[in-house]
Amino acid sequence: MENGIYVRYLEEDPEKPDRWITTQPIRFDTLIGEIIVPEGFVTDFASVPTLFWGLFPPIGRHNRGSLLHDYWYDNRLGVAQWGEKEARRLADLEYWIRMDQAEPKRKLRNRLMYLACRWFARGWWVN
């Protein structure tokens, strides 16, 4: 278990380093209702360039928020109900909320990670 998340490191995929797979379904209560990340979902947690890992670690107490955010993006949750822009905004907002819950004393870092997500994750949303 990694920070309350049941995951396993995917050592067998050298093409995609730093990948983890859920080993059981994980339930979240979110701004849009219940979301269940299924067993077998693959994540890299926070997609942070290696250069910035000292300031913005890809793995940490924010893992649950990162896992939910990856699942939300991969499945474009909420697009049918609210459209592309609002669904993405809600995904990013949920990530920020979860970072603040996991590490309430790191408000500035959490805000910067949220802003980086808003600025740089658009490419993942549209792909």
Rank of each mutant, 00 (worst) to 15 (best):
S47V: 07
P14T: 08
R109G: 01
E2S: 14
R122P: 02
K16C: 10
L31T: 14
P14W: 07
D74I: 06
L31R: 15
E15G: 00
L108M: 14
R118D: 07
C117A: 14
R98Y: 04
Y71T: 08
G54N: 15
I36C: 12
L68D: 02
F52K: 10
A80K: 14
E11P: 05
Q24V: 02
E86H: 10
N110G: 06
V37K: 03
R109T: 07
S47R: 09
H69C: 05
W82H: 11
R122M: 04
R27T: 12
G33K: 04
G54E: 03
P104Q: 07
R98A: 06
D13M: 09
R106C: 10
E39D: 09
R109L: 03
P49K: 09
V79Q: 05
M1S: 14
L51V: 12
I59S: 12
W119C: 13
T30Y: 04
G4C: 05
M1L: 14
L55C: 12
I36D: 13
V37P: 08
D92P: 04
A116Y: 08
D74S: 15
D74H: 11
D74R: 12
R76C: 13
K85L: 05
G78S: 10
G65F: 06
R8T: 06
A87M: 09
F52L: 15
Y6K: 14
W125K: 10
R8L: 01
W96G: 06
A116V: 02
N75Q: 05
E15L: 02
T23E: 13
I21N: 05
I32F: 02
P57S: 14
L67S: 02
G65T: 01
L51G: 08
D29H: 14
P25W: 07
G65I: 01
K16W: 09
A102D: 06
G83H: 04
R61M: 07
M113R: 14
